[in-house]
Design a protein around this nucleic acid. Structure first.
Lengths: 142, 142
DNA sequence: TCTACAAGTTAAAGTGACTTGAGGTTCAAG
DNA sequence: CTTGAACCTCAAGTCACTTTAACTTGTAGA
């Protein structure tokens, strides 16, 4: 009997078996053939599609975005430009988060350095960094 | 009658009213005084704490982490060294997140650029970029 | 062939961090 | 005094899974 069992597919594509069943349930993966004992059997094509899905998810695309991207992969009559647009929108979001996080890192690194320098061992700190986080202005909102 | 109503607090700290009630419910915000008509009344201190919480959340800290950080801000009796240790641990997390996000940004920028270059405008055929996502190797897994 | 036991099956509930909805009360302006 | 915005509580919904329970099937060793 050929084809992969769910556990193998999971390993190959970097997912858990329940996640695969979940994807099937929400219609992101097709319902596969079953062997005699009712167990799912998958093909190389399934490995490809699931790998694609997991990779997109790891990149932070929502299930809905992945659905659209996967449709693009499947249906080659549509232009690549469409995929690029989805990716580009997402890239902007990633960059925004990156900026915010860099600011946070700076604050925290400064705090740790200040602690080492100013209040080394001493009691009753003035923790300016933590204070700053409670005040409006400076750091990113939303 | 002094103090802010929930809507005002929400606006000042960058949250929604239901979120504030939710934070109260899970014990992240104290239960505020109520005025005659049973409506919550908040102080400037609450604005500070909620601002802090929202900012930490925006930076990707979990509620549990925020709980610990907030306790740190509140309790100044603890030595600066202790504060620094907690902050340092969080700094490590922030840096890890930063690394992930940077890798992500790189992959994505590459993806978008490839789309522009390889499949520029061309219809239908062989979007190499999307193909790559379905194949093991090359791009970032997890 | 028998016997473990690993890996598969389903359906339902749990998670985190909120958001939304229903249905009712209170407040502030005109 | 009435309207409508803002408040109240409690329950259920959302997203993307993960976990649990209770059961069946597949496989490898004695």
């Amino acid at each position: 009997m050929s084809g992969y069992k769910i556990g193998i597919l999971a390993k190959r594509a970097g997912a858990n078996a329940p996640t695969i069943r979940y994807y099937e349930q929400i219609g992101l993966l097709r319902r596969p053939d079953r062997q005699d004992g009712n167990q799912r059997r998958y093909s190389d094509e399934d490995v490809g599609r699931l790998t694609f899905i997991r990779r997109c998810r790891a990149f932070g695309f929502s299930i809905d975005q992945v659905r659209r991207l996967a449709a693009l992969v499947e249906d080659r009559s549509r232009s690549c430009v469409e995929a690029r647009d989805i990716a580009q929108a997402h890239l902007a979001e990633v960059r925004a988060k990156l900026r915010e996080l860099r600011a946070l890192e700076k604050s925290f690194a400064g705090f740790v350095a200040d602690c080492d320098a100013k209040c080394a061992g001493a009691l009753g700190p003035q923790c300016a960094v933590l204070d700053e986080l409670s005040v409006n202005g400076s750091t990113g909102k939303r």
